[in-house]
Nucleic acid binder design. Sequence first.
RNA 1: GGCGACGUGGCCAAGUGGUAAGGCAGUGGACUGCAAAUCCACCAUUCACCAGUUCGACUCUGGUCGUCGCCUCCA
Length: 475
Amino acid sequence: MLSLYNTKTRQKQEFTPLDPPFVGMYVCGPTVYGHSHLGHGKSYVSFDVLLRYLRYLDYKVRYVQNITDVGHLTDNADSGVDKLQKQAKLEKLEPMEIAEKYTASYFHDMDILGNLRPDISPRASGHIPEQIELVKTLIEKGYAYQAGGNVYFDVSSFPDYGKLSGRIGDDQRSGTRVCIADDKRDPRDFALWLEAGQDHILGWKSPWGRGYPGWHLECSAMAMRYLGETIDIHGGGLDNSFPHHECEIAQSTAATGKEFVRFWMHNNMVTVDGRKMGKSLGNFTLLRDLFQRWDPMVVRLYILRSHYRSPLDFSDEGLAGARSGLERLMSLRSRLGDHEAGASSQAATELVEKTEQEFKKFMDDDLNTPGALAAIFDFVRACNTLLEAKIKDADKHLMAALMDSLVTDVLGIELASGGSSGSSEDLCRILGELRGYLRKNKLFAEADKLRDDLSEAGFSVRDFPGGVSEVTPDI
RNA sequence: GGCGACGUGGCCAAGUGGUAAGGCAGUGGACUGCAAAUCCACCAUUCACCAGUUCGACUCUGGUCGUCGCCUCCA
Protein backbone atom coordinates (compact mmCIF):
# COMPACT_ATOMS: atom_id res chain seq x y z
CA MET A 1 0.00 0.00 0.00
CA LEU A 2 1.54 3.27 -1.13
CA SER A 3 1.82 5.93 1.50
CA LEU A 4 2.99 9.45 0.73
CA TYR A 5 4.02 12.30 2.96
CA ASN A 6 1.39 14.99 2.73
CA THR A 7 2.67 18.45 3.56
CA LYS A 8 -0.88 19.46 4.41
CA THR A 9 -1.19 16.96 7.26
CA ARG A 10 2.52 16.69 7.99
CA GLN A 11 2.42 12.94 7.99
CA LYS A 12 2.53 9.96 5.71
CA GLN A 13 -0.88 8.97 4.47
CA GLU A 14 -2.13 6.04 2.52
CA PHE A 15 -2.59 7.17 -1.06
CA THR A 16 -5.87 6.54 -2.76
CA PRO A 17 -7.08 8.56 -5.73
CA LEU A 18 -10.41 10.32 -5.68
CA ASP A 19 -11.57 8.33 -8.69
CA PRO A 20 -9.55 5.12 -9.05
CA PRO A 21 -7.78 4.07 -11.15
CA PHE A 22 -7.39 7.63 -12.40
CA VAL A 23 -4.87 9.93 -10.78
CA GLY A 24 -4.55 13.63 -11.46
CA MET A 25 -1.10 14.96 -10.78
CA TYR A 26 0.10 18.52 -11.14
CA VAL A 27 3.67 19.67 -10.63
CA CYS A 28 4.88 23.25 -10.76
CA GLY A 29 7.03 23.56 -13.83
CA PRO A 30 9.89 25.89 -14.57
CA THR A 31 9.88 29.58 -15.35
CA VAL A 32 11.57 29.52 -18.71
CA TYR A 33 14.07 32.35 -18.64
CA GLY A 34 17.26 30.31 -18.16
CA HIS A 35 18.73 26.85 -18.50
CA SER A 36 17.86 24.22 -15.91
CA HIS A 37 20.23 23.49 -13.08
CA LEU A 38 20.69 20.50 -10.81
CA GLY A 39 17.99 21.77 -8.47
CA HIS A 40 15.43 21.49 -11.24
CA GLY A 41 16.86 18.07 -11.98
CA LYS A 42 16.24 16.83 -8.45
CA SER A 43 12.73 18.16 -8.38
CA TYR A 44 11.57 16.79 -11.69
CA VAL A 45 13.36 13.47 -11.30
CA SER A 46 11.63 13.04 -7.95
CA PHE A 47 8.18 13.56 -9.41
CA ASP A 48 9.04 11.54 -12.49
CA VAL A 49 9.75 8.58 -10.23
CA LEU A 50 6.42 9.15 -8.50
CA LEU A 51 4.72 9.15 -11.90
CA ARG A 52 6.54 6.01 -12.98
CA TYR A 53 5.78 4.22 -9.74
CA LEU A 54 2.10 5.11 -9.88
CA ARG A 55 1.96 3.70 -13.40
CA TYR A 56 3.83 0.62 -12.25
CA LEU A 57 1.04 0.22 -9.70
CA ASP A 58 -1.42 0.37 -12.63
CA TYR A 59 -2.85 3.78 -11.92
CA LYS A 60 -3.94 5.76 -14.94
CA VAL A 61 -2.12 9.01 -14.33
CA ARG A 62 -2.63 12.30 -16.07
CA TYR A 63 0.48 14.33 -15.42
CA VAL A 64 0.25 18.07 -15.92
CA GLN A 65 3.26 20.30 -15.55
CA ASN A 66 3.04 23.94 -16.47
CA ILE A 67 5.49 26.14 -18.28
CA THR A 68 5.61 29.60 -16.75
CA ASP A 69 6.19 32.02 -19.58
CA VAL A 70 4.56 35.11 -18.12
CA GLY A 71 3.76 36.74 -14.82
CA HIS A 72 6.74 35.66 -12.81
CA LEU A 73 8.19 38.82 -11.38
CA THR A 74 11.73 39.40 -10.23
CA ASP A 75 10.61 40.59 -6.82
CA ASN A 76 7.56 40.55 -4.62
CA ALA A 77 6.65 44.21 -4.78
CA ASP A 78 4.15 43.46 -7.55
CA SER A 79 5.78 46.22 -9.48
CA GLY A 80 8.82 44.21 -10.41
CA VAL A 81 9.95 43.29 -13.85
CA ASP A 82 8.71 40.16 -15.54
CA LYS A 83 11.56 37.66 -15.56
CA LEU A 84 11.11 36.76 -19.19
CA GLN A 85 10.88 40.33 -20.28
CA LYS A 86 14.08 41.14 -18.40
CA GLN A 87 15.93 38.25 -19.99
CA ALA A 88 14.51 39.22 -23.39
CA LYS A 89 16.05 42.66 -23.09
CA LEU A 90 19.33 41.10 -22.07
CA GLU A 91 19.41 38.77 -25.05
CA LYS A 92 17.77 41.27 -27.39
CA LEU A 93 14.96 38.87 -28.20
CA GLU A 94 11.19 38.86 -28.00
CA PRO A 95 9.88 37.51 -24.67
CA MET A 96 8.26 34.65 -26.53
CA GLU A 97 11.57 33.81 -28.16
CA ILE A 98 13.06 33.54 -24.70
CA ALA A 99 10.19 31.30 -23.68
CA GLU A 100 10.66 29.07 -26.72
CA LYS A 101 14.41 28.87 -26.30
CA TYR A 102 14.38 27.90 -22.66
CA THR A 103 11.34 25.66 -22.93
CA ALA A 104 13.22 23.66 -25.56
CA SER A 105 16.31 23.66 -23.37
CA TYR A 106 14.27 22.45 -20.39
CA PHE A 107 12.68 19.57 -22.30
CA HIS A 108 16.02 18.61 -23.79
CA ASP A 109 17.68 18.38 -20.38
CA MET A 110 14.76 16.49 -18.87
CA ASP A 111 14.62 14.07 -21.78
CA ILE A 112 18.21 13.02 -21.42
CA LEU A 113 17.84 12.86 -17.64
CA GLY A 114 15.28 10.19 -18.39
CA ASN A 115 12.14 12.03 -17.29
CA LEU A 116 8.94 11.12 -19.07
CA ARG A 117 7.18 14.00 -20.76
CA PRO A 118 4.14 15.32 -18.92
CA ASP A 119 0.88 14.44 -20.62
CA ILE A 120 0.10 18.14 -20.80
CA SER A 121 2.58 21.02 -20.58
CA PRO A 122 0.29 24.03 -20.55
CA ARG A 123 1.76 27.50 -21.03
CA ALA A 124 0.56 30.27 -18.77
CA SER A 125 0.38 32.63 -21.73
CA GLY A 126 -1.95 30.21 -23.51
CA HIS A 127 -4.44 30.23 -20.64
CA ILE A 128 -5.13 33.90 -20.11
CA PRO A 129 -8.92 33.56 -20.62
CA GLU A 130 -9.13 30.88 -17.93
CA GLN A 131 -7.17 33.08 -15.57
CA ILE A 132 -9.34 36.10 -16.26
CA GLU A 133 -12.43 33.99 -15.58
CA LEU A 134 -10.97 32.86 -12.28
CA VAL A 135 -10.30 36.44 -11.24
CA LYS A 136 -13.83 37.43 -12.18
CA THR A 137 -15.23 34.61 -10.08
CA LEU A 138 -13.13 35.61 -7.10
CA ILE A 139 -14.28 39.22 -7.34
CA GLU A 140 -17.91 38.14 -7.66
CA LYS A 141 -17.65 35.93 -4.60
CA GLY A 142 -16.04 38.70 -2.59
CA TYR A 143 -12.59 37.19 -2.26
CA ALA A 144 -10.84 39.75 -4.42
CA TYR A 145 -10.93 43.46 -4.99
CA GLN A 146 -9.91 45.81 -7.73
CA ALA A 147 -7.56 48.71 -7.13
CA GLY A 148 -7.07 50.66 -10.30
CA GLY A 149 -5.74 48.27 -12.93
CA ASN A 150 -4.70 45.73 -10.30
CA VAL A 151 -6.72 43.00 -8.67
CA TYR A 152 -5.71 41.50 -5.34
CA PHE A 153 -6.82 38.49 -3.39
CA ASP A 154 -8.25 39.54 -0.04
CA VAL A 155 -6.44 37.25 2.36
CA SER A 156 -8.58 38.27 5.30
CA SER A 157 -11.58 36.76 3.53
CA PHE A 158 -9.95 33.34 3.52
CA PRO A 159 -9.30 32.11 7.08
CA ASP A 160 -7.38 29.01 6.01
CA TYR A 161 -4.64 31.09 4.45
CA GLY A 162 -1.33 29.99 5.96
CA LYS A 163 -2.51 26.54 6.98
CA LEU A 164 -0.31 24.58 4.55
CA SER A 165 2.88 26.31 5.60
CA GLY A 166 1.95 26.76 9.24
CA ARG A 167 1.76 30.52 9.05
CA ILE A 168 -1.36 31.21 11.04
CA GLY A 169 -2.27 34.80 11.78
CA ASP A 170 0.00 37.62 10.93
CA ASP A 171 2.69 37.21 13.57
CA GLN A 172 5.13 36.10 10.89
CA ARG A 173 5.20 39.57 9.51
CA SER A 174 7.59 41.06 12.02
CA GLY A 175 11.13 40.93 10.82
CA THR A 176 10.28 40.33 7.21
CA ARG A 177 11.06 42.63 4.39
CA VAL A 178 7.75 42.52 2.59
CA CYS A 179 7.29 45.70 0.65
CA ILE A 180 3.80 46.98 0.93
CA ALA A 181 2.22 48.04 -2.29
CA ASP A 182 0.22 51.20 -1.77
CA ASP A 183 -3.05 49.93 -3.10
CA LYS A 184 -3.21 46.72 -1.06
CA ARG A 185 -5.61 46.54 1.86
CA ASP A 186 -3.41 44.09 3.72
CA PRO A 187 0.28 43.36 3.15
CA ARG A 188 -0.51 39.64 2.84
CA ASP A 189 -2.84 40.25 -0.09
CA PHE A 190 -1.36 38.99 -3.31
CA ALA A 191 -1.85 40.00 -6.91
CA LEU A 192 -4.24 38.14 -9.18
CA TRP A 193 -3.99 40.60 -12.04
CA LEU A 194 -1.57 43.43 -12.63
CA GLU A 195 -1.76 46.46 -14.81
CA ALA A 196 0.79 46.43 -17.60
CA GLY A 197 2.81 49.60 -17.73
CA GLN A 198 3.95 51.31 -20.89
CA ASP A 199 7.17 49.33 -21.14
CA HIS A 200 5.50 46.03 -20.38
CA ILE A 201 5.41 44.02 -23.61
CA LEU A 202 3.45 41.11 -22.21
CA GLY A 203 -0.06 42.35 -21.70
CA TRP A 204 -3.63 41.25 -22.39
CA LYS A 205 -6.97 42.99 -22.49
CA SER A 206 -9.10 42.34 -19.44
CA PRO A 207 -12.09 43.83 -17.63
CA TRP A 208 -9.53 45.75 -15.53
CA GLY A 209 -7.57 47.11 -18.45
CA ARG A 210 -4.48 45.86 -20.19
CA GLY A 211 -2.52 43.68 -17.85
CA TYR A 212 -1.06 40.29 -17.02
CA PRO A 213 -1.81 37.58 -14.49
CA GLY A 214 -0.14 37.19 -11.12
CA TRP A 215 2.25 34.29 -10.85
CA HIS A 216 0.15 32.18 -8.50
CA LEU A 217 -2.91 32.35 -10.68
CA GLU A 218 -1.72 30.25 -13.59
CA CYS A 219 -1.26 27.06 -11.59
CA SER A 220 -4.75 27.25 -10.13
CA ALA A 221 -6.30 27.94 -13.51
CA MET A 222 -4.43 25.28 -15.45
CA ALA A 223 -4.58 22.60 -12.77
CA MET A 224 -8.34 22.92 -12.56
CA ARG A 225 -8.75 23.21 -16.32
CA TYR A 226 -7.08 19.87 -16.95
CA LEU A 227 -7.53 17.94 -13.71
CA GLY A 228 -10.81 19.18 -12.28
CA GLU A 229 -11.59 21.18 -9.18
CA THR A 230 -10.05 18.67 -6.81
CA ILE A 231 -6.77 17.09 -7.82
CA ASP A 232 -5.10 14.11 -6.25
CA ILE A 233 -1.48 15.19 -6.12
CA HIS A 234 0.15 18.57 -6.40
CA GLY A 235 3.92 18.65 -6.26
CA GLY A 236 6.65 21.19 -6.32
CA GLY A 237 9.82 22.37 -4.64
CA LEU A 238 9.73 22.95 -0.90
CA ASP A 239 10.57 26.57 -1.55
CA ASN A 240 7.24 26.98 -3.29
CA SER A 241 5.10 25.86 -0.39
CA PHE A 242 4.97 29.47 0.72
CA PRO A 243 3.76 31.70 -0.70
CA HIS A 244 3.02 30.06 -4.05
CA HIS A 245 1.09 26.99 -2.97
CA GLU A 246 -0.61 28.81 -0.15
CA CYS A 247 -1.93 31.30 -2.71
CA GLU A 248 -3.01 28.53 -5.06
CA ILE A 249 -5.05 26.96 -2.28
CA ALA A 250 -6.66 30.27 -1.43
CA GLN A 251 -7.57 31.08 -5.04
CA SER A 252 -8.87 27.68 -5.97
CA THR A 253 -10.74 26.86 -2.81
CA ALA A 254 -12.32 30.28 -2.67
CA ALA A 255 -13.46 29.98 -6.28
CA THR A 256 -14.94 26.48 -6.09
CA GLY A 257 -15.71 25.92 -2.43
CA LYS A 258 -14.07 22.54 -2.81
CA GLU A 259 -10.89 21.01 -1.55
CA PHE A 260 -8.26 21.89 -4.17
CA VAL A 261 -5.53 19.32 -3.54
CA ARG A 262 -5.66 16.08 -1.59
CA PHE A 263 -1.92 15.38 -1.42
CA TRP A 264 0.63 18.16 -1.34
CA MET A 265 4.14 16.90 -1.98
CA HIS A 266 7.35 18.88 -1.75
CA ASN A 267 10.86 17.88 -2.64
CA ASN A 268 13.80 19.27 -0.72
CA MET A 269 16.57 21.40 -2.17
CA VAL A 270 19.97 20.79 -3.67
CA THR A 271 22.62 22.54 -1.64
CA VAL A 272 26.22 23.48 -2.30
CA ASP A 273 28.45 23.50 0.77
CA GLY A 274 25.26 23.49 2.76
CA ARG A 275 23.69 26.46 1.00
CA LYS A 276 20.70 26.18 -1.28
CA MET A 277 21.60 26.04 -4.95
CA GLY A 278 19.87 28.89 -6.70
CA LYS A 279 20.07 31.81 -9.01
CA SER A 280 20.31 34.43 -6.31
CA LEU A 281 23.45 32.94 -4.75
CA GLY A 282 24.90 32.21 -8.18
CA ASN A 283 26.07 28.81 -6.93
CA PHE A 284 24.12 26.73 -9.40
CA THR A 285 25.44 24.10 -11.77
CA LEU A 286 23.56 23.84 -15.02
CA LEU A 287 22.52 20.38 -16.08
CA ARG A 288 23.90 20.94 -19.55
CA ASP A 289 27.33 21.65 -17.99
CA LEU A 290 27.03 18.69 -15.65
CA PHE A 291 26.31 16.43 -18.61
CA GLN A 292 29.64 17.40 -20.14
CA ARG A 293 31.38 15.65 -17.30
CA TRP A 294 28.91 13.05 -16.12
CA ASP A 295 26.58 10.71 -17.91
CA PRO A 296 22.97 11.88 -17.36
CA MET A 297 22.22 8.51 -15.78
CA VAL A 298 24.98 9.14 -13.24
CA VAL A 299 23.24 12.39 -12.33
CA ARG A 300 19.90 10.62 -12.09
CA LEU A 301 21.27 7.88 -9.84
CA TYR A 302 23.01 10.54 -7.76
CA ILE A 303 19.68 12.27 -7.23
CA LEU A 304 17.85 9.05 -6.37
CA ARG A 305 20.49 7.95 -3.88
CA SER A 306 19.03 10.44 -1.44
CA HIS A 307 15.40 10.78 -0.43
CA TYR A 308 13.32 13.38 -2.23
CA ARG A 309 12.45 15.08 1.05
CA SER A 310 16.09 15.30 2.13
CA PRO A 311 18.42 18.00 0.96
CA LEU A 312 21.10 16.83 -1.44
CA ASP A 313 24.50 18.41 -0.99
CA PHE A 314 26.23 18.67 -4.34
CA SER A 315 29.69 17.16 -4.57
CA ASP A 316 31.95 15.57 -7.14
CA GLU A 317 32.66 12.77 -4.69
CA GLY A 318 28.98 12.00 -4.57
CA LEU A 319 28.74 11.93 -8.35
CA ALA A 320 31.82 9.73 -8.59
CA GLY A 321 30.21 7.31 -6.16
CA ALA A 322 27.06 7.30 -8.24
CA ARG A 323 29.08 6.56 -11.36
CA SER A 324 30.70 3.53 -9.75
CA GLY A 325 27.29 2.36 -8.67
CA LEU A 326 25.85 2.84 -12.15
CA GLU A 327 28.75 0.90 -13.65
CA ARG A 328 27.93 -1.94 -11.30
CA LEU A 329 24.31 -1.96 -12.38
CA MET A 330 25.17 -1.73 -16.07
CA SER A 331 27.79 -4.40 -15.77
CA LEU A 332 25.30 -6.87 -14.36
CA ARG A 333 22.68 -5.95 -16.93
CA SER A 334 25.18 -6.58 -19.70
CA ARG A 335 26.22 -9.92 -18.14
CA LEU A 336 22.59 -11.00 -18.12
CA GLY A 337 22.20 -10.39 -21.84
CA ASP A 338 19.01 -10.99 -23.77
CA HIS A 339 17.55 -14.44 -23.46
CA GLU A 340 14.21 -16.06 -24.03
CA ALA A 341 11.86 -16.67 -21.16
CA GLY A 342 11.59 -20.25 -20.00
CA ALA A 343 11.42 -22.51 -16.99
CA SER A 344 13.51 -20.80 -14.34
CA SER A 345 15.13 -22.28 -11.28
CA GLN A 346 13.62 -21.99 -7.85
CA ALA A 347 16.59 -20.03 -6.55
CA ALA A 348 16.28 -17.39 -9.25
CA THR A 349 12.53 -17.17 -8.93
CA GLU A 350 12.71 -16.72 -5.18
CA LEU A 351 15.46 -14.13 -5.49
CA VAL A 352 13.48 -12.11 -7.99
CA GLU A 353 10.31 -12.28 -5.94
CA LYS A 354 12.09 -11.30 -2.75
CA THR A 355 13.78 -8.38 -4.46
CA GLU A 356 10.58 -7.08 -5.96
CA GLN A 357 8.88 -7.27 -2.57
CA GLU A 358 11.71 -5.41 -0.87
CA PHE A 359 11.78 -2.81 -3.61
CA LYS A 360 8.06 -2.21 -3.33
CA LYS A 361 8.22 -2.08 0.43
CA PHE A 362 10.64 0.82 0.22
CA MET A 363 8.87 2.59 -2.63
CA ASP A 364 5.52 2.24 -0.85
CA ASP A 365 7.06 4.02 2.09
CA ASP A 366 6.94 7.52 0.63
CA LEU A 367 9.16 6.72 -2.35
CA ASN A 368 12.22 5.66 -0.38
CA THR A 369 14.52 5.42 -3.38
CA PRO A 370 17.72 4.99 -1.34
CA GLY A 371 16.15 1.96 0.30
CA ALA A 372 14.84 0.67 -3.00
CA LEU A 373 18.33 1.00 -4.46
CA ALA A 374 19.75 -0.93 -1.51
CA ALA A 375 17.36 -3.75 -2.41
CA ILE A 376 18.59 -3.54 -6.00
CA PHE A 377 22.24 -3.67 -4.98
CA ASP A 378 21.56 -6.69 -2.78
CA PHE A 379 20.01 -8.27 -5.84
CA VAL A 380 23.03 -7.36 -7.95
CA ARG A 381 25.38 -9.13 -5.57
CA ALA A 382 23.14 -12.19 -5.44
CA CYS A 383 22.93 -12.32 -9.23
CA ASN A 384 26.66 -11.95 -9.65
CA THR A 385 27.21 -14.76 -7.17
CA LEU A 386 24.85 -17.02 -9.07
CA LEU A 387 26.51 -16.03 -12.32
CA GLU A 388 29.87 -17.17 -10.98
CA ALA A 389 28.47 -20.62 -11.55
CA LYS A 390 26.69 -21.43 -14.79
CA ILE A 391 23.02 -20.56 -14.68
CA LYS A 392 20.18 -21.19 -17.07
CA ASP A 393 19.35 -18.67 -19.74
CA ALA A 394 15.81 -18.60 -18.42
CA ASP A 395 17.18 -17.42 -15.07
CA LYS A 396 19.14 -14.69 -16.78
CA HIS A 397 16.01 -13.64 -18.57
CA LEU A 398 14.11 -13.45 -15.31
CA MET A 399 16.81 -11.37 -13.63
CA ALA A 400 17.18 -9.10 -16.63
CA ALA A 401 13.44 -8.57 -16.76
CA LEU A 402 13.45 -7.50 -13.12
CA MET A 403 16.28 -5.03 -13.70
CA ASP A 404 14.45 -3.62 -16.70
CA SER A 405 11.24 -3.29 -14.79
CA LEU A 406 12.48 -1.83 -11.50
CA VAL A 407 15.61 0.03 -12.44
CA THR A 408 14.76 1.19 -15.94
CA ASP A 409 10.98 1.48 -15.96
CA VAL A 410 10.33 2.59 -12.38
CA LEU A 411 13.49 4.47 -11.45
CA GLY A 412 14.10 5.58 -15.02
CA ILE A 413 17.74 4.55 -15.06
CA GLU A 414 18.68 3.36 -18.53
CA LEU A 415 21.15 0.50 -18.28
CA ALA A 416 21.80 -0.24 -21.93
CA SER A 417 25.41 0.49 -22.81
CA GLY A 418 25.30 4.23 -23.27
CA GLY A 419 24.28 5.47 -26.62
CA SER A 420 26.64 3.45 -28.75
CA SER A 421 25.46 3.28 -32.30
CA GLY A 422 25.32 0.06 -34.26
CA SER A 423 28.62 0.72 -35.96
CA SER A 424 30.50 1.40 -32.73
CA GLU A 425 29.04 -1.79 -31.29
CA ASP A 426 30.57 -3.63 -34.22
CA LEU A 427 33.89 -1.91 -33.64
CA CYS A 428 33.83 -2.84 -29.97
CA ARG A 429 33.18 -6.45 -30.91
CA ILE A 430 36.06 -6.50 -33.37
CA LEU A 431 38.45 -4.88 -30.89
CA GLY A 432 37.35 -7.32 -28.22
CA GLU A 433 38.12 -10.19 -30.54
CA LEU A 434 41.50 -8.70 -31.28
CA ARG A 435 42.38 -8.38 -27.59
CA GLY A 436 41.19 -11.94 -27.06
CA TYR A 437 43.30 -13.19 -29.95
CA LEU A 438 46.42 -11.44 -28.63
CA ARG A 439 45.91 -12.87 -25.14
CA LYS A 440 45.27 -16.32 -26.43
CA ASN A 441 48.56 -16.21 -28.30
CA LYS A 442 50.39 -14.75 -25.31
CA LEU A 443 51.19 -11.52 -27.14
CA PHE A 444 50.76 -9.68 -23.84
CA ALA A 445 52.71 -6.54 -24.70
CA GLU A 446 50.51 -5.93 -27.73
CA ALA A 447 47.36 -6.90 -25.85
CA ASP A 448 48.14 -4.45 -23.05
CA LYS A 449 49.04 -1.68 -25.47
CA LEU A 450 45.60 -2.15 -27.00
CA ARG A 451 44.00 -2.05 -23.56
CA ASP A 452 45.83 1.15 -22.64
CA ASP A 453 44.93 2.83 -25.92
CA LEU A 454 41.31 1.84 -25.55
CA SER A 455 41.24 3.14 -22.01
CA GLU A 456 42.61 6.46 -23.17
CA ALA A 457 39.94 6.60 -25.85
CA GLY A 458 37.23 5.98 -23.28
CA PHE A 459 36.67 2.26 -23.55
CA SER A 460 37.00 -0.47 -20.95
CA VAL A 461 38.18 -4.00 -21.47
CA ARG A 462 36.86 -7.05 -19.66
CA ASP A 463 38.69 -10.33 -19.98
CA PHE A 464 37.27 -13.76 -19.54
CA PRO A 465 39.06 -17.09 -19.33
CA GLY A 466 39.88 -18.80 -22.59
CA GLY A 467 40.95 -15.73 -24.56
CA VAL A 468 37.59 -14.05 -24.67
CA SER A 469 37.55 -10.30 -24.22
CA GLU A 470 34.89 -7.65 -24.32
CA VAL A 471 35.18 -3.93 -25.08
CA THR A 472 32.58 -1.44 -23.87
CA PRO A 473 32.42 2.34 -23.93
CA ASP A 474 32.92 4.06 -20.56
CA ILE A 475 30.09 6.04 -19.02
C1' G B 1 11.83 37.49 15.50
C1' G B 2 8.05 33.55 13.48
C1' C B 3 7.43 28.63 11.11
C1' G B 4 9.84 24.07 9.68
C1' A B 5 13.67 20.37 8.80
C1' C B 6 18.06 18.03 10.01
C1' G B 7 22.76 16.30 12.88
C1' U B 8 24.15 7.99 11.72
C1' G B 9 31.47 5.00 10.14
C1' G B 10 36.68 8.40 5.69
C1' C B 11 32.55 10.26 2.12
C1' C B 12 27.26 9.55 0.62
C1' A B 13 22.89 7.53 2.74
C1' A B 14 18.49 4.26 4.77
C1' G B 15 16.37 2.55 9.22
C1' U B 16 13.79 0.72 13.80
C1' G B 17 11.17 0.96 21.07
C1' G B 18 14.75 -4.85 21.27
C1' U B 19 20.01 -4.07 19.97
C1' A B 20 23.01 -0.23 13.14
C1' A B 21 20.46 -1.50 5.18
C1' G B 22 23.02 -0.16 0.91
C1' G B 23 26.65 2.58 -2.24
C1' C B 24 31.58 4.75 -2.74
C1' A B 25 36.42 4.48 -0.75
C1' G B 26 39.82 1.12 2.07
C1' U B 27 42.15 -3.77 3.81
C1' G B 28 43.04 -9.18 3.18
C1' G B 29 42.00 -13.47 0.01
C1' A B 30 40.12 -16.04 -4.68
C1' C B 31 40.19 -15.49 -9.97
C1' U B 32 43.77 -13.29 -13.88
C1' G B 33 49.82 -13.59 -17.84
C1' C B 34 49.25 -8.64 -15.19
C1' A B 35 45.11 -5.68 -14.41
C1' A B 36 39.92 -4.48 -14.51
C1' A B 37 35.28 -6.67 -13.55
C1' U B 38 33.28 -10.37 -10.27
C1' C B 39 33.14 -13.34 -5.73
C1' C B 40 34.47 -14.27 -0.34
C1' A B 41 36.02 -11.99 4.32
C1' C B 42 36.94 -7.51 7.19
C1' C B 43 35.59 -2.32 7.94
C1' A B 44 30.23 2.25 13.53
C1' U B 45 29.95 -1.78 21.23
C1' U B 46 27.81 3.07 18.14
C1' C B 47 23.76 6.79 15.78
C1' A B 48 25.79 15.69 17.96
C1' C B 49 25.57 16.46 23.48
C1' C B 50 22.87 16.24 28.37
C1' A B 51 18.84 14.66 31.20
C1' G B 52 14.05 11.91 31.54
C1' U B 53 10.27 7.87 30.33
C1' U B 54 11.12 2.40 29.67
C1' C B 55 12.92 -4.21 31.30
C1' G B 56 15.33 -1.95 27.06
C1' A B 57 16.20 4.23 22.97
C1' C B 58 19.85 5.71 17.92
C1' U B 59 14.50 5.42 17.59
C1' C B 60 9.67 8.63 22.57
C1' U B 61 9.84 13.41 25.87
C1' G B 62 12.48 17.87 27.56
C1' G B 63 16.81 20.79 27.16
C1' U B 64 21.71 22.28 25.01
C1' C B 65 24.90 22.95 20.86
C1' G B 66 25.38 22.99 15.58
C1' U B 67 23.64 23.20 10.35
C1' C B 68 20.05 24.41 6.82
C1' G B 69 15.29 25.96 4.49
C1' C B 70 10.95 29.26 4.29
C1' C B 71 8.98 34.07 5.94
C1' U B 72 11.42 38.40 -1.02
C1' C B 73 11.93 35.63 -6.91
C1' C B 74 13.51 30.55 -6.75
C1' A B 75 12.57 23.29 -8.20
